[in-house]
């Protein structure tokens, strides 16, 4: 379970303070596929960077099974990183490494058992349907395939949570559908909690069971996806759903 508790992030810039997150709270249950939806500039990216521990919040906590991970340092931070897999919009694969080496990368950071690593990589590539591409390089793959590699890599260390930052924004509709199917499948098979940050309605609608709407640095609405889609309360949700003129 992940609890986001009273999280705030304020950036000090030359032109003054910029509030990127204002006292946001949410609880994400184990096994959820949780959508965080908002327009550009709403604070989505900052929230993601806080969640994947690249950025420390100014205030508040991120509790992973009751333990605050938002303010860790050193070895504890490295260990916390390994409990979260992250998939990025731009894939961020190592271009000079093969698909198999990319997936093995997080494993090799800690493990030295070559055979075990190989076995795990084969398993993961099988899971994302790219077993035949193990020896290819990222430049030889399509966008959807690259995202599958990124997904396999993010899952390599058996994370509790999978964070997805606009995972399908660079993909065409058909590829988007197949990647979303895969995410759903992984959620079911591995029981991993998935958090998806996106501006695409269709993504949230098709796979998220719960969601929040973020607007102007705040969570303006949260609840089950179905309830929000049927009866949006906040003006931003109504706007996003096209229920407001």
């Amino acid at each position: 379970m992940i609890e986001i508790k009273n999280l705030s992030k304020i950036f000090n810039t030359k032109s003054g303070q910029v509030v990127a997150l204002k006292n946001v709270s949410a609880t994400i249950e184990n096994g959820d596929i949780f959508g965080i939806m908002g327009m550009s500039g709403a604070g989505k990216s900052t929230l993601l960077r806080c969640l994947c521990l690249l950025e420390q919040p100014t205030e508040g906590q991120i509790l992973l099974d009751g333990k605050d991970v938002a303010h860790l340092k050193g070895k504890e931070l490295l260990a916390a990183h390994r409990q979260m897999g992250v998939v990025f919009q731009g894939y961020n694969l190592l271009m000079q490494k093969t698909v198999a080496e990319n997936v093995a990368f997080p494993l090799k950071l800690t493990a030295y058992d070559k055979v075990a690593v190989q076995k795990r990589v084969a398993e993961l590539l099988e899971l994302v349907g790219l077993a035949d591409k193990a020896e290819s390089y990222p430049s030889q793959l399509s966008g959807g395939q690259k995202q599958r590699v990124a997904l396999a890599r993010a899952l390599a260390s058996n994370p509790q949570v999978l964070l997805c930052d606009e995972p399908t924004s660079a993909l065409d509709p058909l590829t988007t559908k197949s990647v979303l199917e895969l995410l759903k499948d992984i959620n079911k098979k591995l029981g991993v909690t998935i958090i998806i940050i996106t501006h695409e309605l269709s993504v949230v609608k098709s796979i998220c069971n719960r969601m929040v709407v973020i607007d102007n640095s705040q969570f303006v609405e949260q609840g089950s996806t179905q309830a929000i889609f049927e009866n949006p309360q906040s003006s931003m949700a109504r706007l996003l759903l096209g229920k407001e003129d």
Binding site: C52, H81, V86, F105
Partner: peptide
């Protein structure tokens, strides 16, 4: 690409690992 470095950080790579396995290899 800075994103690749951040990805490595998200996987729990130490600075040394980022230098030797990402920067100097890529």
């Amino acid at each position: 690409d800075g994103g690749v470095i951040e990805a490595a950080r998200c996987m729990g790579a130490t600075n040394w690992q980022i230098i030797t396995r990402v920067l100097l290899v890529e």
